[in-house]
Simulated scan of single mutants.
Amino acid sequence: MRIGVIGAGAIGGTIAALLDRVGHLVEVTARGEQLAAIRDGGLRLDGGCGSHTARIAAAETLQTRPELAFVTTKAQDAPAAIRANAAVLDGITVVVVQNGLAGLREAEQLLPGSDCVGALALYAASYLSPGLVSVTTTANTYLGAGDGPPPQAAVDAARILDAAMPAFAIDNFTGAQWTKLMVNQINALPAITGLSAQQVLGDRRLRAVVTASLQEATRVGYARGVRYGSIQGLDDRILRVVARAPRWAAQAVPLLMKRRMGSTPNPGSTLQSIRRGQLTEIDYLNGAVVDEARTAGIEAPVNAAITALVHEVERTGTFLSPDQVHERMRPLLA
Rank of each mutant, 00 (worst) to 15 (best):
I3H: 03
G4I: 12
L19K: 00
L25V: 10
A30C: 08
A30R: 12
A37S: 14
L45D: 13
L45N: 11
G50M: 11
S51T: 15
T61M: 13
T61G: 06
L62Y: 12
L68A: 08
L68E: 07
K74V: 00
A75T: 14
A81V: 09
N85C: 11
A87Y: 02
D90Y: 00
L101E: 01
L104N: 01
R105F: 00
R105C: 05
V117A: 10
A125N: 06
S126N: 14
Y127T: 00
P130N: 05
G131A: 08
G131N: 08
L132T: 08
V133C: 03
V133G: 02
V135E: 01
A139W: 10
T141M: 14
Y142D: 09
Y142T: 12
L143A: 09
A145F: 12
A145T: 06
G146E: 11
G148R: 14
V155R: 15
D156S: 14
A157P: 09
I160F: 12
M165Y: 14
A167F: 10
G175L: 07
K180P: 02
V183Q: 05
T193Q: 03
L195E: 04
S196H: 02
R204N: 06
R204S: 14
T211W: 00
S213W: 00
V226S: 02
R227N: 13
Y228Q: 10
G229S: 11
D235L: 05
R237N: 13
L239W: 01
R240G: 15
V242F: 11
A243P: 11
R244Q: 14
A245V: 09
R247K: 07
W248N: 11
L256Q: 15
P265K: 03
P267S: 06
P267D: 06
L271V: 01
R275P: 00
Q278T: 03
T280Q: 05
D283F: 05
N286Y: 04
G287K: 00
V289S: 09
V290G: 00
A293S: 12
E299A: 15
P301K: 09
T307L: 06
L309E: 10
H311I: 09
P322F: 06
M329S: 06
M329R: 06
L332C: 13
A334M: 04
A334C: 11
